[in-house]
């Protein structure tokens, strides 16, 4: 099996671990962390295709990952601030109970 395939397998399995975690856990922090893992899996994909792609010298994959990391950091900050705000309102952080906006 070529290294590229291994990298892609790693990234897709990591993506699915994050997905299952985000779907199965009720704690909002863990759901957020699951989403972070999915983002990381995407970054691994970028790096893998940069490394084994046709034109690694351009460095597009690396730059994309850097931007993705910056955006993910912003996402984590806002997401965890939201968690704290939710906790202040309903005294717990179970995601399924944060449903006051439902139709």
């Amino acid at each position: 099996m070529s290294p590229l395939q291994l990298c892609l397998l790693l990234s897709s399995l990591l993506f699915c671990v994050g997905l299952v975690g985000a779907l199965a856990r009720s704690n909002t922090i863990l759901v957020l962390l699951g989403v972070e893992l999915m983002l990381n899996a995407a970054n691994i994909n970028f790096i893998a295709f940069w490394r084994y792609g046709p034109n690694p010298a351009a460095g597009t994959g690396v730059l994309f990952v850097l931007f993705a990391i910056a955006v993910a950091a912003a996402e984590a900050a806002v997401g965890l601030a939201l968690v704290i705000a939710v906790y202040r309102h309903q005294k717990n952080i179970r995601l399924q109970e944060a449903n006051r906006l439902k139709g």
Partner: peptide
């Protein structure tokens, strides 16, 4: 560590610093 393995040192450092 994966980024380091793949040769993207700068991304690895960014990952360590940020995550």
């Amino acid at each position: 560590a994966f980024y380091l393995w793949a040769g993207a040192e700068f991304v690895a450092f960014a990952q360590v610093l940020i995550y």
